[in-house]
């Protein structure tokens, strides 16, 4: 039943036999043999050890970086064949939240960070931009930080600015790179609840369910949330299937990322 459902839903991101290289050394492959299909409304959780190429994988998935080999499609269109402005248009339908503080533009205030893509891409009047920025800041719970520069924002709240910036343009899918890294339980809870609300259809987005991809090196918080699971192990792509299949899986890396091995020892 699940396979039939997967085929019926339109494809958001698709990779076929893709190899992912690191942006710093394009010759070194980080992950090989990625056969991955993210359909509309999916909630993927990708687990991997730190430094195993999660960020590069998400960069390729979002269309920022070309795969070293194989094909990559965004919304059914092959990205290698797209013209620059067509690719830019497709890329805007996918939001990407970077890890470690969200890579904010350090010379702009929080509000300007969020307004930048709106001013660049939308022909809206200034009041409308301001209203949208205020609404997104409110959504991320950081309205009081609007006038601060990113360096003055508490570290735990910086990723939320990145989240707000990615959501400002109303994307259809959201990719998150290790969003819970270094967060205390209270902030981690906020993220989990917020992402669960997005996946179920947040009222801010008119109850439209958002396609989510989360990459992380600690899978404990995600096992109850994610609907599809995969691992990157020894530079290979390893799909695990749905939640039940992942929970029953005895793969040692999965046990490690769930910190189950420490518990049994």
């Amino acid at each position: 039943m699940e396979t039939a459902e997967t085929i019926a839903r339109p494809c958001v991101i698709e990779m076929q036999d893709a190899a992912i290289s690191s942006p710093h050394s394009p010759d070194a492959l980080e992950i090989e043999g990625v056969n991955w299909r993210v359909s509309l409304d999916d909630y993927w959780v990708v687990g991997a050890r730190p430094g195993s190429g999660k960020s590069s994988l998400l960069a390729v998935a979002a269309g920022l970086q070309r795969p070293a080999r194989g094909t990559h499609r965004l919304f059914g269109q092959e990205t290698a064949a797209l013209h620059e402005h067509e690719l830019a248009r497709e890329r805007l339908r996918v939001g990407l939240v970077f890890e470690m503080g969200g890579r904010l533009f350090s010379h702009l205030t929080v509000a300007e960070n969020i307004a930048l893509p709106l001013r660049y891409h939308r022909d809206w009047p200034e009041e409308e931009v301001q209203a949208r920025v205020a609404a997104v800041l409110e959504l991320a719970g950081i309205a009081h930080l609007a006038a601060h520069t990113p360096a003055r924002v508490v570290r735990a709240l910086q990723p939320r600015v990145g989240l707000a910036r990615a959501l400002a343009l109303n994307p259809e899918a959201l990719l998150l790179d290790n969003p819970l890294a270094g967060l205390d339980p209270r902030h981690a809870r906020w993220w989990l609840d917020f992402l669960a609300a997005l996946a179920a259809g947040h009222e801010f987005f008119e109850r439209r369910r958002m396609t989510l991809v989360v990459a992380g090196d600690d899978l404990r918080p995600w096992m109850e949330q994610g609907r599809q699971f995969a691992l990157v192990k020894d530079r290979r792509w390893l799909p695990l299937g749905g939640r039940e299949a992942a929970a029953a899986c005895m793969e040692p890396l999965l046990r490690e990322l769930l910190a189950a091995e420490f518990a049994t020892e």
Partner: peptide
Amino acid sequence: TARALGEVEALEALAID
């Protein structure tokens, strides 16, 4: 610095040239 901290990639992620 912007390049090293990945801000340029962040621009590209927002489809800003």
